[in-house]
């Protein structure tokens, strides 16, 4: 992205493991698409980021490997996007309405360094 333009911020999404019906999942998926679409429509999406599967592994000291899914963790890291905004406050405003928040999740907003 152009350096002269607005600053970039990373939105990190965390969300509890949800037990949704296929319809419920579809509905939530649609809300995410509309929400990211809204940011993109404002020309403020720098990257659609990467989306993470709920399953995985964690390596700890001593070669200890634990497998996911991490149901015991209250909020699972689900992925991130990168947005363009002038200030941290503007970035927080953009983060409002994130569908993850409505289902008990959170958005962590961090300044990105080039």
């Amino acid at each position: 992205m152009n350096k002269n333009q607005a600053n970039e911020f990373v939105f990190l999404f965390r969300q509890p493991a949800l037990n949704l019906s296929p319809e419920g999942q579809g509905e939530l998926q649609k809300k995410w698409m509309d929400w990211v679409g809204s940011i993109a429509a404002q020309g403020k999406l720098a990257s659609n980021g990467i989306h993470l599967a709920a399953e995985g592994s964690v390596l700890k000291a001593g070669g200890v490997v634990t497998d996911g899914p991490f149901v015991e963790i209250r909020e699972i890291l689900g992925g991130f996007i990168v947005v363009k905004a002038d200030t941290m406050d503007d970035a927080i405003t953009l983060a409002h309405g994130c569908p993850g928040i409505d289902v008990g999740g959170s958005v962590e907003i961090r300044t990105a360094f080039a």
Binding site: K30, M33, D34, V36, G37, A40, A41, Q42, G43, L45, N48
Partner: peptide
């Protein structure tokens, strides 16, 4: 159409696409 415009914006932003999406 809305969902397709949402996707299109992710790969190809333009003011016209943003307006059509809205």
């Amino acid at each position: 159409i809305l969902q397709l415009y949402n996707q299109l914006l992710l790969i190809n932003y333009s003011p016209m696409v943003a307006l059509n999406r809205t």
